[in-house]
Design a protein around this nucleic acid. Structure first.
Lengths: 230, 230
DNA sequence: GTCTATAACCGGATAGAC
DNA sequence: GTCTATCCGGTTATAGAC
């Protein structure tokens, strides 16, 4: 019992694979149209010409369907960013594009994603981005930022550099949270926030090499070492 | 119909007032013991010797009970911080104490508060801290930080100063989110994070007066003006 | 192992009588 | 303002077919 998220993704037979995907795609389409809460599991099953039990055979909970969407985009995100990283060595551009791509992937499903982000506020939830169970996914997401930094033109050396991938991932979470709440047309406020805040972040990073600012840098290192981000 | 959060707090008769408080106190005690999800409305009603319908007469949803707790602490928070502000003019200490007090108020009810913070991830939710309906509460919370800054030894002038209360409120939200997820003993990691991050924040604020850093300051102002925080 | 069909459970929320 | 009965939807249980 108690399969991990990854194990659940690997049904035994091709037929099962197909069924699982059918449920997934159907549900997603319905969520996109009517929103997560408005769609019932009974409706999803009926739309797939199956019994409720079948849906629950593949997805432990309704939320797990949305979580699977997240896993999918995660995969795509990895591929898309790798292309970008080949095109440019500039860190700021790499990070900016990385997050922009994520938002673009999410865009058509924005309303449904709040169902996923509610989970982030619940420390006990299996699917929380901070939970043990989603550790693997989280680390893959952080790795994308690691790749963005490796082989880039980022001059920064020393301890803080190692924390950057995790910090950017956290930053990305913040941007997404803002984006989900962003009611401006096409969420352009979020894009502005992204652009402008990245500008400041990299100004500060460049600044951090000035010898007179050793003190702040020391404080930052202390903070990061003490506050184990795990 | 559609009373605001504030109107709901003012029942017509003293008797009603009492009933409401009984439900509130009973539920809170039960949440504290068994956690929000584990307690049912039926149990709460039974413990109060009334019918479910009665409980729902006073609280629109189960979450509203927790929200009322939040309103209570909000009141207390205002009073407690005013005392602190009389004792010290130092901004950093004022802000630090403000947030520490909030965490202390929350501490006994930590597990139940995740129910409230899940709401923060849901843009459509009435009780979201970013929603229209909770605007009044939000502004009261922000005002506390305004008071912390007014009459303090903060030297900062200019545009950014006006944004500080809102920014500190946002910062406080982040700290609370971290604190809710913090599994370290007595959440001491969170206190470390608070202490160390405040240190950096105020180092940066002091730094912002150096003329050579005009550029960053300009970027920050631009960011804040464009990203209307409302 | 993959599914159907159906009934039931549970708990949040509501309706409507009193 | 309070009650009882009911709805609703996520989830589970059961029993069996392929």
């Amino acid at each position: 019992m108690n399969k991990t998220i990854e194990e659940m993704k690997n049904p035994k037979t091709p037929k099962a694979q197909e069924t699982r995907e059918k449920i997934f795609r159907t549900a997603l389409e319905m969520f996109k149209e009517k929103g997560f809460e408005k769609v019932t599991m009974r409706e999803i099953a009926k739309a797939c010409n199956m019994a409720v039990g079948a849906a629950y055979y593949y997805f432990k909970t309704k939320e797990d369907i949305v979580f699977e969407f997240y896993l999918h985009t995660q995969q795509e995100h990895e591929e898309e960013t790798q292309k970008i990283f080949k095109e440019s060595k500039d860190v700021q551009e790499r990070i900016s594009k990385t997050i922009t791509i994520k938002l673009e992937q999410f865009a058509p499903y924005r309303s449904m994603l709040s169902a996923l982000f509610k989970i982030a506020g619940d420390p006990g939830h299996r699917l929380s981005p901070f939970s043990n169970e989603s550790k693997k996914v989280r680390e893959e997401a952080i790795d994308i930022f690691r790749h963005a930094i490796e082989g880039s033109n980022l001059k920064m050396r020393g301890e803080i550099r190692n924390y950057l991938p995790h910090l950017f991932w956290l930053y990305q979470m913040g941007i997404i949270l803002f984006w989900i709440h962003d009611r401006s047309e096409n969420q352009k406020q979020s894009l502005l926030l992204l652009k402008n805040s990245l500008k400041i972040i990299f100004q500060l990073i460049r600044l951090s090499r000035i010898p007179g600012l050793k003190k702040i840098k020391q404080s930052a290192i202390e903070l990061l070492n003490q506050t184990k981000l795990n």
